[in-house]
């Protein structure tokens, strides 16, 4: 006989918390071992009871669902957390996943769907609806687009020259004198270099150029 899935419920909505517990009690393979109405109480109880699956409401008083998920992921990674969320917000789902949640179920979902999610995460799977998965894929693609692939970054010969002068320890004024350009033009070049490479300062630009062997070898 299969071992029952031990479930914990944390939700400040008493009717929902008690109702879900009563309904889950009807499932043959699920046993509700405890519940809590606040985040801090949930963490305390879950550490004591060590359920297989914790259903955690996203918006609880004191510590919210994300705080609870992070705490559990850090201290009790074996407990699979399913976040019970209200809005279908992709960013919120992303944060939940990053915090260590194994599943995200909207309260707009059916009870049957919730039960399916509990069984899924117990099997070690991650769980979200196909619609949520589609949103997540889009969001991931968006984020990937925000990071410029390194291969597509092209520094102009002039910009490489400017980095070389910076590496030589020259100030903007000295570089402008050496390259016969205005100091403001030097500043523009540096700004463009940092922007293209998504770096923060001149030192990082030199480091970048050194790693990619863009710096001219100095004669011995």
């Amino acid at each position: 006989m299969n071992k029952s899935i031990r479930v914990f419920i944390a939700d400040d909505n008493r009717l929902l918390r008690e109702g879900i517990a009563s309904m889950l009690a009807q499932e043959e393979d699920i046993i509700v071992i405890g519940s809590a109405m606040s985040g801090s109480e949930a963490i305390k109880q879950i550490k004591k009871l060590r359920p297989d699956v914790a259903l955690i409401d996203i918006g609880m008083p004191d510590k919210d669902g994300l705080d609870v998920t992070q705490a559990l992921y850090k201290d009790l990674p074996s407990v699979k957390v399913i976040i019970l969320g209200m809005p279908d917000l992709t960013d919120e789902i992303m944060v939940c996943i990053e915090s260590g949640a194994a599943g995200y179920v909207l309260k707009e979902a059916s009870f049957e769907y919730l039960v399916e999610s509990i069984r899924s995460v117990k099997r070690g799977e991650s769980f979200c609806s196909p619609r949520m998965a589609a949103s997540l894929f889009s969001r991931i693609a968006e984020l990937a687009g925000e990071r410029i692939p390194e291969s597509s970054v092209k520094l102009t010969p002039r910009e490489v020259e400017v980095i070389n002068k910076i590496a030589d320890g020259m100030s903007n004024k000295e570089i402008s004198g050496q390259l016969y350009i205005e100091e403001q033009t030097v500043k523009n070049h540096i700004h463009n270099i940092l922007d293209k490479l998504q770096l923060h300062n001149r030192l990082e630009a030199v480091q970048y150029a050194r790693e990619r062997k863009l710096l001219k070898q100095k004669p011995e």
Partner: peptide
């Protein structure tokens, strides 16, 4: 939400 509705129904 639907989950609450199902709980009330139950």
């Amino acid at each position: 939400p639907k989950l609450l509705s199902e709980v009330i129904h139950y």
